[in-house]
Amino acid sequence: MSCEEPTTSPTPENNITVVSSDGKEFLLDLKLTEQSETLARLISNFEYDRTDVKKDPVPLGNITSAQMQKIIEWLQHHRYYPKWEQNDIHYSTSFTFETWVEEYLNIPNNEMFELLNAANYLNIPRLFSTICRIMASRITGKSAEQIRTVLNIKTDVKNDVYTGIPIQEDSSSSEDGMSEISLSPSPPPI
């Protein structure tokens, strides 16, 4: 999809300030915030789209400045895209993305995980859905043993309830009590 991207400069009338968890301020064009359902609802509730309303900075306690910078890049690229329509992705195993998206998401897995959480928090459906599809594509078509390898699922040994014979059981847990799973650093061809 190709979109014209005219340059616009935020002015006090058409922007808000958001503050990342590490205290950095970002000036956001109201047009960009339309892609985030969280921000759009906040702006609507506080009537920040009116010129006569004082706009306090919006704290985003769950988003770091690096994540915010990355998200703004996404919002700016999709500024003039039509509103995202969620398709039924069930049972779809092959996805294609435009080159810009592939390059944008060619990032380490830990950044991808943080970006997905940020997209979920800010409720940016296009970004959220895109990352989820990429994650699904890294699992699909693999056997349990291949998924264990690719996702680096750690196991321990426990006796089988029927035979008494040792079987493999997952024992990995991170500090939050959840399994730590790693994906291979290079994404598969999309």
Partner: peptide, 20 residues
């Protein structure tokens, strides 16, 4: 290897990944 603790995702994104 970079970690992607997929099972640590909140319910909504985890469901979205599983939906694919």
């Amino acid at each position: 290897m970079d970690k992607f603790p997929i099972l640590s995702l909140p319910a909504v994104p985890l469901r979205q990944v599983l939906g694919g």
